[in-house]
């Protein structure tokens, strides 16, 4: 039974099977994301990151387990939580024919944002979108679309932000700008952020804690520095490869148990 109502997100035993006889996409996932922290979900394709985020957002019904988002049980009271959460993903589009301002206005209304015009101007200024407000969303570059998606995800000043690969398909400069912006925003707003990413440098830079997923299971977890130390590596990419290829951590490699496991 999870009781940590003060956590931004408290997850216990979260499991998803798309088919009763099929392999589970996520198995027995448990964690507690503190308010104001940024945590990462790390894993390869098919590891269960997107499935996990979809369940946390109420888009997908779990097969088992429980989610408390901002103190609300997502199984019974998800709309109260969703009003204080938001989400961004490069794989979910905003209507292309609507202008940036119109798109943001739609979501300002959906989230019941007071003084929506003022909020949109504020976000546009912060995310350097002022000159883009009247342009159709479909005519923007990948970097501009990412900033618009970020503005959409912040329109309601969320207490919990879920980001699915926030810098995918961005050039290094734009990616760095987004990461800096997210760091600053979290520090200023106290918003908790859970991000799923393939980008090890991003996870290393932004996240206080990392959950490493493989085949739907958490196979390791810890701060980026703790993972680097445990695996005896210089960067998270090498740690990721050790985990993905089941080479084990430094101690397991030393005593040969990792090869036996693999």
């Amino acid at each position: 039974m999870i009781t940590d109502d003060n956590a931004a997100l408290a997850v216990q035993g979260l499991t998803k099977r798309y088919r009763p006889e099929g392999a589970p996409a996520v198995v027995d996932l448990s964690f507690t994301l503190p308010r104001g922290a940024t945590w990462g979900l790390l894993g390869g394709n098919g590891a269960g990151k997107t499935t996990t985020i979809a369940m946390l957002l109420g888009l997908l019904v779990p097969s088992g387990g429980r989610i408390l988002a901002l103190g609300h049980d997502m199984a019974v009271d998800r709309f109260a939580a969703l009003a204080r959460m938001n989400f961004s993903s490069p794989y979910v589009a905003l209507p292309h024919r609507l202008s940036v301002a119109e798109n943001l206005m739609v979501y300002a209304h959906l989230y019941g944002v007071p003084k929506p015009r003022q909020r949109i101007e504020e976000l546009a200024e912060q995310l350097q979108l002022t000159d883009l407000l009247k342009r159709p969303a479909g005519e923007l570059s990948a970097g501009q679309k990412t900033r618009v998606a970020l503005a959409k995800s912040l329109v309601n000043r969320p207490d919990l932000l879920l980001l699915d690969e926030p810098t995918a398909s961005l050039d290094p400069d734009t990616g760095d700008w987004v990461r800096s912006w997210l760091e600053r925003y979290r520090a200023e707003s106290g918003c908790a952020i859970l991000l799923a990413s393939h980008n090890m440098a991003e996870v290393e830079r932004l996240c206080a804690e990392v959950l490493v997923l493989r085949a739907g299971r958490v196979v390791d977890r810890g701060s980026p520095s703790a993972l680097l130390e445990r695996y005896g590596r210089d960067d998270l990419e090498e740690v990721f490869l050790d985990i993905a290829r089941e080479r084990g951590n430094a101690a397991e490699r030393a005593d040969g148990s990792a090869e036996q496991m693999a």
Binding site: L57, G58, L59, F79, L82, A83, M85, N86, F87, S89, Y91, V92, A93, L94, P95, H96, R97, Y107, L110, Y111, G112, K152
Partner: peptide, 12 residues
Amino acid sequence: SRNLGHVFVSPL
């Protein structure tokens, strides 16, 4: 417009 994901994670 592949927008349903955003619509259904809002409080609508």
